[in-house]
């Protein structure tokens, strides 16, 4: 077991092991996503208040969960990379940033598409929407910093620091925004606190959440493999790999 993890830490073995996982992950993720979408879009009952437009939640809610989850993963991987100088953790951290930004963007877009019929407007300065928007800015900052530094190892370590600072700040930002929102306009707009959700809606939602997690894992492994190849382009095993076929 320990040997397995040790091997996973070396770029060469990571490349091989991740490559063998990807087809399986893709298959399971695809099946779960199809099942979840079918259950959510067709089988789940229509909401008595929101009609069919609530169904966007099967995309929206898992993306919103993923947007925060990936930021934490990114900061944790960055911290591991900083502390134990694990190259692979740096690679995972930096490969996660664009995926997390995409999920955040997806959550914002689906939220605003849902908001148009429900609130009658594309955008409301709602506490959750606003903190999601700020989260997107944090992701973009991480990506901008990584792109700006030429030496990729330095860039990965610098972005790790930024991600850790961000992770300390996210709760502060979230609660300050919530506080700002309640003070300024009060929960006049639809407040969907914790409605007791129908089990037939909950199951597709959870299935979609698992599918999205697997999707993240799949994409992060694919991105990390490419990143590893690029970083190790002068290593022997990469040359052999490229020249082999």
């Amino acid at each position: 077991m320990l040997r397995f993890f040790h091997q996973l830490g070396s770029p060469k073995h990571f490349y091989r092991i991740a490559g063998s996982w990807i087809p399986w992950l893709a298959a399971v993720c695809g099946l779960l996503m199809l099942y979840g979408l079918y259950q959510g879009m067709v089988v789940a009952p229509t909401d008595y208040q929101q009609g069919d437009s609530y169904r966007i939640m099967f995309i929206h809610v898992p993306s919103a969960w993923m947007s925060l989850f990936i930021y934490v993963v990114m900061a944790a991987a960055g911290a591991i990379g900083l502390i134990w100088h694990m190259k692979l953790a740096e690679v995972i951290a930096i490969s996660s940033a664009p995926i997390g930004a995409s999920f955040t963007f997806l959550a914002l877009v689906t939220g605003s598409i849902w908001g148009k019929p429900m609130w009658g407007t594309w955008w409301v300065w709602d506490a959750r929407l606003t903190s999601e928007l700020i989260l997107l800015f944090l992701y973009l900052g991480v990506m901008a910093l990584y792109g700006a530094i030429d030496d990729k190892r330095t860039a990965a370590r610098a972005t790790a620091i930024l991600a850790i600072v961000g992770v300390v700040n996210i709760p502060i930002i979230h609660y300050s925004v919530e506080w700002w929102n309640t003070l300024h306009q009060g929960p006049t707009v639809t407040k969907f606190g914790a409605p007791s959700i129908d089990i037939r809606m909950l199951i597709p939602l959870l299935v979609m959440a698992v599918a999205f997690k697997l999707f993240y894992l799949l994409v992060v492994l694919m991105r990390a493999r490419v990143e590893v190849l690029e970083r190790e382009r002068n290593a022997r095993w990469v040359r052999e790999l490229v020249e082999a076929p």
Binding site: I134, L138, G141, L145, A148, A158, I161, N169, I173
Partner: peptide, 23 residues
């Protein structure tokens, strides 16, 4: 400190710092 070595650090600095100023 993160952008000090960069040639065009100014714009990136604002991207990094402004979201953290919100609270």
């Amino acid at each position: 400190a993160l952008t000090v070595g960069l040639r065009r650090g100014g714009v990136i600095l604002s991207l990094l710092v402004l979201p953290l100023y919100i609270p």
